[in-house]
């Protein structure tokens, strides 16, 4: 019981990080019709900014996070206006390859701007004896609770925003049909730009949440990114709630198999299971088959 609860808590923490990253991917997929492989490195880039501000200028973690979120917002807007929008006419495969090109550019820029040393970021609430509570024998840190709360609030806000506001409606109609919504007077360019900015901010938050567990290095989000993709695929790229559910399912089953089956190959087993699920349900758990017109 105690171990299971502990696994559950830690899965909630990693699951919310995956969910943030995969929501970003799905937002971009729906509004710009491309799979953003660069989601991870965009987050990493801003994570580096945060870590540099923290280490070199001695700012607190809260200020640093606010600053990184702001630069993430700018990065998202910049990428959309400079690269994605001019390329909106190219075919979908080339668009995906553009995001792969973005990965290469950012990976090349990182050591040039920030040096080759790995950086580090602290937790929001440092772990001591007094900052953890135990629930039925399994302890959970305040920091983990904070991460879970922040991510779930953000996701809740996003869902509320998508469902009940005018801009949310704009995003949903852009996702449904780009051309028609443009004809109806929806500012699709702004919608796409804001989705890129939001996705970049989500990626950056994921980077800042995951950084204390390892360190800040160019590949820090590689694992998160792969999991986020799998979560999105498992939940279905065509729904917004699917990826979040997929992220938590993935996190819990990964942690369970890592502990109860094999600590080296647990991941692999879960991923294979996901592939099998996809074979049976190709559009994900919540996804619908898109109608393609010739």
């Amino acid at each position: 019981m105690e171990t299971t609860l502990r696994i559950f808590f830690s899965s909630l923490e990693t699951g919310s990080v995956y969910a943030l990253a995969s929501l970003g991917i799905v937002l971009i997929f729906r509004t710009s019709k491309t799979t953003n492989f660069a989601q991870g490195v965009i987050g990493t880039f801003n994570g580096y900014i945060a870590a540099t501000l923290f280490l070199k200028w001695g700012w607190g973690i809260w200020e640093v996070t606010a600053c990184a979120l702001f630069t993430a917002f700018l990065t998202g807007i910049l990428i959309d206006t400079i690269i994605i929008r001019p390329a909106s006419k190219v075919n979908p495969v080339s668009k995906q390859i553009i995001t792969l090109g973005l990965i290469m550019i950012i990976l090349g820029i990182l050591p040039w701007l920030f040096g080759i040393d790995f950086l580090s970021l602290p937790r929001f609430i440092p772990i001591t004896e007094s900052t953890r509570i135990s629930v039925l024998g399994a302890s959970i840190t305040y920091n983990a609770i904070f991460v879970i709360l922040v991510s779930s609030t953000l996701m809740g806000l996003l869902f509320w925003f998508l469902k009940y506001t005018k801009w949310g409606l704009a995003i949903r109609v852009t996702a449904a049909d780009d051309t028609t919504s443009k004809l109806m007077g929806v500012p699709t360019k702004t919608v796409t730009m804001i989705s890129w900015a939001t996705a970049a901010m989500f990626g950056t938050l994921a980077a800042i949440f995951i950084a204390p567990q390892t360190n800040v290095n160019p590949l820090m989000l590689a694992d998160v990114q792969i999991n986020a993709f799998f979560a999105a695929v498992l939940g279905g790229f065509t729904s917004f709630i699917g990826p979040v559910v997929g992220a938590f399912i993935l996190a819990i089953s990964k942690n369970l198999s890592l502990i109860y089956i094999s600590d080296e190959w647990g991941n692999v087993i879960v991923y294979l299971l996901v592939l099998v699920v996809l074979f049976i349900k190709p559009y994900g758990l919540f996804g619908k088959k898109g109608v393609k017109k010739v």
Binding site: I83, A87, I97, I98, L100, G101, L102, I103, M104, I105, I106, L107, G108, I109, W112
Partner: peptide, 8 residues
């Protein structure tokens, strides 16, 4: 950077 820019 060279390859990435070239791709795009």
């Amino acid at each position: 950077i060279f390859s990435g820019v070239l791709i795009i």
